[in-house]
Design a protein around this nucleic acid. Structure first.
Length: 262
DNA sequence: ATGGTTGATAGTCAA
């Protein structure tokens, strides 16, 4: 069975239900992982999505902030939901498809503005969150698993518009890149997006604050698709749907896709 | 060095 998966930080699933529907109709991923739904689970407009064939969902939510959901046209069963760093935030959910594939959907803390845990509690929480992800995947070695989400870190030089200018900017600091690498190593995860697109600048997020996001193109690759080693050779056709950043009332993130022959 | 925009929600906080 081949299935296509997409991950998208939607920045309010209720406000942006119209463009979620547009994505489902035009691109037809089998599984869509959303982050920053900013909604209690019972207020996610699932009926809008069910009408398009996406009647299955596992989700965690809270009022106003955070929130993760996996929409699927295939049956999916919840298998985990961890509160890493004990923040009391809805930032992780994992589901399993009937073919045995596990999908982890993460919204890693953004970390605030100052990359120093002494001066900025949020930065420390981000590093702690990553350390607990690492420890969890050390204890729970992933098999036949996919990890996606807004990891809020752009690890490579060509994942940002200017490596040198961003070295002290939260999302691209060396300590964050190191912590993310530890998570990746702990689960033997393969970066599927960069397996498929090994060369060149690649972004999934552009700030709302730019006058012209497209022309300035000051992007970062914050959204990721990883696969456990045992299924990494089944992955292909990765892409970022940059067009979606220019849709009506857009999210500041674009969806990232991958297809798996499993 | 600073401000730029957006969303949830009702004065700010978070991104």
């Amino acid at each position: 069975m081949a299935f296509t998966l997409a991950t998208w930080n939607i920045n309010s699933v209720r406000l942006r239900s119209p463009i979620v529907q547009k994505l489902l109709q035009e691109e037809g991923p089998d599984v869509l992982c959303l982050q920053e739904t900013k909604s209690p689970v019972d207020k996610i407009p699932l009926e809008d999505f069910a009408a398009l064939g996406y009647g299955h969902m596992v989700a965690r939510g809270q009022k106003g902030y955070n929130g993760v959901a996996i929409l699927s046209r295939l049956p999916i069963e919840e298998v985990a939901s961890e509160d890493f760093a004990s923040l009391g935030h809805a930032r992780h959910i994992a589901g399993r498809l009937e073919n045995g594939t596990t999908v982890h959907n993460f919204y890693v803390p953004a970390g605030g503005d100052v990359p120093d845990r002494e001066k900025n509690e949020k930065f420390g929480q981000k590093l702690d969150y990553l350390a607990e992800m690492r420890d969890w995947f050390t204890q729970n070695a992933p098999e036949k698993s996919i990890l996606v989400g807004d990891l809020n870190i752009a690890p490579r030089e060509d994942d940002v518009w200017d490596h040198k200018k961003l070295l002290k900017v939260v999302s691209h600091t060396p300590i964050e890149v190191e912590k993310l690498a530890e998570v990746q190593d702990s689960g033997n995860w393969v970066d599927v997006t960069r397996q498929d697109i090994p060369e060149g600048k690649l972004y999934s997020w552009w700030s709302y604050r730019a006058r012209d996001w497209d022309a300035a193109d000051k992007g970062r690759r914050l959204d990721h698709v990883w696969a456990s080693k045992d299924i990494s050779n089944a992955a292909h056709s990765s892409r970022v749907l940059r067009d979606a950043r220019g849709w009506e009332k857009p999210s500041d993130h674009a969806p990232v896709f991958a297809t798996f022959d499993l």
